[in-house]
Design a protein around this nucleic acid. Structure first.
Length: 201
DNA sequence: CATGGGATTGACT
DNA sequence: GTCAATCCCATGC
């Protein structure tokens, strides 16, 4: 219905870092429509969530530790971690160096390498390839070793999309137990590629 | 060194 | 709707 018929375009040096240096909720919305690529697989971002050191749902809330060091670093860097011992999550570090904040990439609209995504996911339907934070990292082959990597350099990259920015809906973040009231989840209105809150319509 | 808790997903009742 | 899988890492003794 509202599929994004976009393709990535090269970004001038420093564009991603400059964008990500802004306020994290602004960054989370601005990244929608951008393209995540790893090798031959790529997808358009259709859902994000913002996390900031000032609120307890953010890993950086506890301060700078080995785990959160990346979050406190410069913007535009990948923060990758393992969740529930099973799934890998991809975040983009936001806000200036020294502030712990990041944007969780929660869903992509598959753009290239769909057959490889199907192979990695063991699913056929395109709607089931990247419609969740653990799913998209599996589909793109993103792993813990990508933590700390510069997303403007690669191997995992995030580059601008093409075309008008899509209409964005704000809502509550999913799967957390603290600061649940903050409307810091952002998704493309009407997209069939966004994740589903457990049991939601 | 031991313990406990997840920014989830898929299978099953 | 319910539940287990599975491991990294922060915390505490």
């Amino acid at each position: 219905m509202s599929d994004l018929l976009e393709r990535e375009r090269p970004a001038p040096a420093g564009v991603l870092a400059q964008l990500c240096a802004g306020e994290v909720c602004t960054v989370a919305q601005a990244l929608i429509g951008w393209v995540v690529r790893h090798g031959e697989t790529a997808g358009v971002i259709v859902e994000t969530e913002a996390y900031h050191e000032s609120e307890p749902a953010c890993h950086a809330f506890v301060g700078r530790t080995r785990r959160t060091a990346t979050l406190f670093g410069p913007p535009g860097i990948a923060y990758v971690y393992r969740s529930y011992g099973v799934h890998t999550m991809l975040n983009v570090v936001a806000e200036p160096d020294g502030i712990g904040a990041g944007v969780l990439i929660r869903a992509l609209e598959p753009l290239e390498g769909v057959e490889l995504m199907r192979l990695r996911r063991g699913r056929e339907r395109v709607e089931e390839l990247c419609s969740g934070p653990g799913k998209l990292t599996q589909a793109l082959g993103i792993e813990l070793g990508h933590n700390g990597g510069d997303l403007s350099v690669g191997p995992v990259t995030i580059t601008p999309g093409v075309g008008p920015p899509p209409a964005i809906i704000g809502s509550r973040r999913i799967g957390i137990t603290k600061a649940v009231e903050l409307p810091w989840r952002f998704s493309v209105a009407g997209s069939r590629f966004v994740s589903r809150a457990r049991g939601a319509a």
